[in-house]
């Protein structure tokens, strides 16, 4: 394992552990307001200071990390699941189903991803409870992010469908759903795993973008995108450089994921 991979693992471990132990590290809830300490600089009680509503920034960062780190893999799982269903069915059956899926994928992928995300999110109710906003963001990312992975899965399913071992399975008289389920799907596991891990950083960024624009996770629930809003004013960054902390954590997480994914690809 290279030095970069070790550092990447260490960073991911630290970030995940800190997010998991958020309530223990910072006892203050992410929405508790310290009215006497509005926009306070870092101190022993508030290591990253407080925001304009007097809420502890570290608490919000750690709880926001929890939300973003759970939301992105969950959305990636949903997108991979949809891609597996659509791609396997199209690759396995071929014919009009395959052509239909190809057309839908082409159409979905020809639209700019962020534009599509913003349009669909804007069409949905915006004035919702924080947990509902999390659920909407999760479903939106998953439901709109399946097209790219589905094309890859479809190509894999087609290749496996024409393989010698599938021919042997047919020659043995396999019938019905057992052929695709028992023989095809296990062979697609590496493709699906790769698609899942490729989607995670994409969805982290997508969630951050949505929340930054006020279309993702809503206040007072924190997420990385929501926390990045504080960086909108350049003079504010100069005065309070610690508000860069969410951006630094986001960058470290993405960089670490890409380093680890690159290593995985090299192994494959």
């Amino acid at each position: 394992m290279s030095l970069a991979q070790r550092i990447a693992w260490l960073l991911i471990a630290v970030i995940v552990t800190a997010a998991a132990l958020a309530s223990w590290i910072v006892p203050a809830s992410y929405d508790r307001q310290f009215r006497d300490e509005i926009q306070a600089p870092p101190s022993k009680a508030h290591p990253l200071g407080t925001d304009e509503l007097g809420r502890d920034r570290l608490s919000r960062l750690l709880h926001g990390t929890q939300v973003s780190l759970l939301l992105a893999p969950a959305a990636a799982f949903l997108a991979t699941l949809l891609a597996a269903l659509a791609g396997t069915l199209a690759g396995w059956r071929g014919g009009w189903l395959d052509h239909a899926l190809e057309s839908v994928c082409d159409l979905t992928m020809s639209l700019p991803w962020m534009f599509l995300l913003l349009t669909v999110r804007a069409a949905l109710p915006l004035d919702v409870a924080p947990m509902t906003s999390v659920a909407i963001t999760f479903f939106l990312l998953g439901a709109l992010g399946w097209a790219g992975p589905a094309r890859v899965v479809r190509a894999g399913a087609r290749a496996l469908r024409d393989s010698d071992y599938m021919l042997m399975a047919r020659a043995q008289g396999y019938r019905g759903w057992r052929l695709p389920v028992w023989h095809l799907l296990p062979g697609l596991r590496p493709v699906l795993t790769a698609q899942f891990w490729t989607s995670v950083p994409l969805f982290i960024l997508a969630e951050a973008n949505l929340s930054l624009l006020g279309l993702g996770v809503v206040e007072p629930m924190p997420s990385w995108g929501g926390l990045l809003k504080e960086m909108e004013s350049l003079p504010a960054i100069g005065r309070n450089p610690w508000i860069l902390a969410p951006a630094v954590v986001l960058l470290m997480t993405l960089a670490s994921l890409y380093v680890l994914m690159g290593a995985k690809e090299e192994e494959a």
Partner: peptide, 27 residues
């Protein structure tokens, strides 16, 4: 029954041989 010329590619690499026998039987 059919036996193909390439034994390496004729068995499903992802499944245990027992599973492949079971499926061939249950079919």
């Amino acid at each position: 029954s059919l036996v193909l010329q390439s034994p390496a590619s004729s068995l499903n690499p992802w499944l245990k041989l027992g599973t492949q026998f079971r499926e061939a039987w249950v079919a």
